[in-house]
Design a protein around this nucleic acid. Structure first.
Lengths: 237, 237
DNA sequence: TGCAATACAGACCGAACGGTCTGTTGTCAA
DNA sequence: TTGACAACAGACCGTTCGGTCTGTATTGCA
């Protein structure tokens, strides 16, 4: 089977592989010392939580990674949970949305945008290298979504805004004739997020080296089914 | 919007709502004492791990739930991980597969079977009441899929067998004219599992009361796109 | 019945964790 | 220069957890 990633399309993603910051490697050297400490703690916390999960991420490891101490931590944050909430909120909005929301904000062809985004993430190696521990939002959903109301609220807000952007893009797509007019945009947007979630999770445990190619093929089939009219010749090459 | 659950079809699920054991409430009173202890420990472990996750499930809570002691636990199992692996393997194969695999083993119309299974799970209240903590396999995937190789292997084996049953059913569906002949059964089966995974996770954190109805509508749309018909695909690579 | 071997019971232990508290350093305005 | 407060530094504490170990009850077989 040919790779579904083989035929990328010139895309309007407004994402430059050279400048996209992934993972979180921003520079704060210009900021005041206290804020550097605070941001460093959040950065280390986000990384540790991403790699190990909230409960397994020990404060000692976070502090070592940040080059800080208990005194600094509890000066800036009330407790571990406050640090985690601040860190996740900050980096989800900074890193994840830059990649996963911006391309859709002005798109009237979400099927093409999503397809190209997937190809972009694959060709830039994000899927292979950067997805070893899954997606931060997905991980947080699974670990803390039920156990803690504050984390649940954060995730719910993120998903809601995410869904709204997709719904708006789907509706523009319907108006532009790029998306079937009879689909439920709200449910379809939810399903797209759910598929993203499920695919990332499936990849985490699968030992099949072709798992992403097979899944991408099926996902692209699904995306094409959202286009209006006959399915003939809608799969741009 | 009409509920997508409104029009159930007479289904060949071979699942009787009255006899399906969900959650795990089997009776082992006939078994020898030692085996009752062992099964009781596994049952309690599965429940605690399902509700709190592996790391957060304390041995003290498992023991209290099982009415057993440390001595009994470490007589039957090497450590916490061995208990967890045995418990998850046992109950995934016992409870989950009875519901999620058996209906597909003889079906040549997986689209209908899956649709009816979703409706069945909804009308019997499993989705509303029994899904508060998500799905055991999904939870285990997220928490332990990357952290521990033994858990990863267990999940991978479960998903592989699961996928094989779906693939066989899809192929029978193609032979019987119920499924589009051009789809990649392997990728589609993976995607179905990924969608199941993603939908369950999405529901866990969403505060939208209609989330399942909206998602089910979109899922049913996707399933119908797998049927042959005028929307024949030309998405060939 | 007696004797192993199995099947527990539960006190105990060391490690790790989140959080506290006291002391020290840096910063900036008066 | 100095006082006041922010910004740390790090020893310390109580709790919890997984795991061990010794002792006791139950069971199956000779």
């Amino acid at each position: 089977m040919a790779s579904p990633f083989e035929h990328p399309v010139e895309h309007p993603l407004k994402l430059d592989p050279a400048t996209v910051k992934f993972p979180r490697d921003r520079d704060w050297s210009g900021k005041p010392r206290a804020e550097q400490t605070r941001l460093g703690l959040m950065k280390a916390a986000a990384a540790e939580i991403y790699e190990k999960g909230y409960n397994a991420a020990a404060l000692s490891d976070i502090l070592q990674r940040a080059g800080a101490t208990k005194g600094a931590l509890y000066h800036h944050f009330a407790d571990k949970k406050a640090l985690a909430l601040a860190a996740m909120d900050h980096f989800i909005r900074l890193d994840l949305w830059e990649i996963w929301l911006e391309p859709f904000r002005a798109s009237d062809d979400p099927v093409l945008t999503l397809r190209n985004l997937i190809i972009f993430l694959n060709t830039t190696g994000v899927i292979d290298k950067g997805l070893k521990h899954g997606c931060p939002v997905v991980n947080l959903t699974e670990e803390m979504g039920v156990q803690d109301e504050d984390f649940r609220t954060l995730i719910d807000e993120v998903n809601t805004e995410w869904r709204k952007v997709l719904v708006a893009s789907l509706k523009r797509g319907q108006a532009a004739g790029n998306v079937r007019p009879d689909i439920d945009c709200d449910g379809t947007a939810m399903l797209i997020l759910a598929i993203r979630h499920g695919v990332i999770s499936y990849k985490k445990t699968s030992s099949d080296p072709d798992v992403m190619a097979k899944l991408a093929g099926a996902v692209f089939e699904f995306l094409e089914s959202l286009r209006p009219g006959e399915r003939a010749a809608t799969n741009v090459h």
